[in-house]
């Protein structure tokens, strides 16, 4: 058997109730349960978290830098998606 440092898992921590999980870093672990425990031991030493997700790093598919133009620029010319696009006369409330 070849010795390794175990596969990499990405760790996402929810710092407070009601807010999204945020990427905290990664840990090495042989399986999901140990990944969860290692994530707890590494990333919540200063009460940073209340919930943790661990995901095998190789299960994550990321968009590539070359995709940036075709993925994200098309939304730049759609200012009508933003509320500031619309002029509302002063005095009109609750809009």
């Amino acid at each position: 058997m070849t010795d390794t440092q175990w596969p990499v898992w990405e760790v996402f921590v929810q710092a407070n109730p009601g807010i999204p999980h945020k990427h905290a870093g990664s840990v090495h672990a042989p399986d999901a349960e140990m990944a969860l425990q290692n994530a707890r031991d590494v990333y919540s030493r200063r009460s940073e978290g209340m919930n943790i997700w661990v995901v095998p790093a190789n299960a994550i598919t990321a968009s590539s830098p070359e995709d940036q133009g075709s993925f994200f620029e098309p939304s730049n010319d759609k200012p009508y998606r933003h509320p500031t696009f619309y002029k509302i006369p002063e005095g009109v409330k609750y809009l």
Partner: peptide
């Protein structure tokens, strides 16, 4: 035996 476990034991 591995860095992660080092941290766990210290905890």
């Amino acid at each position: 035996p591995i860095l992660e476990e080092d941290l766990a034991m210290i905890n």
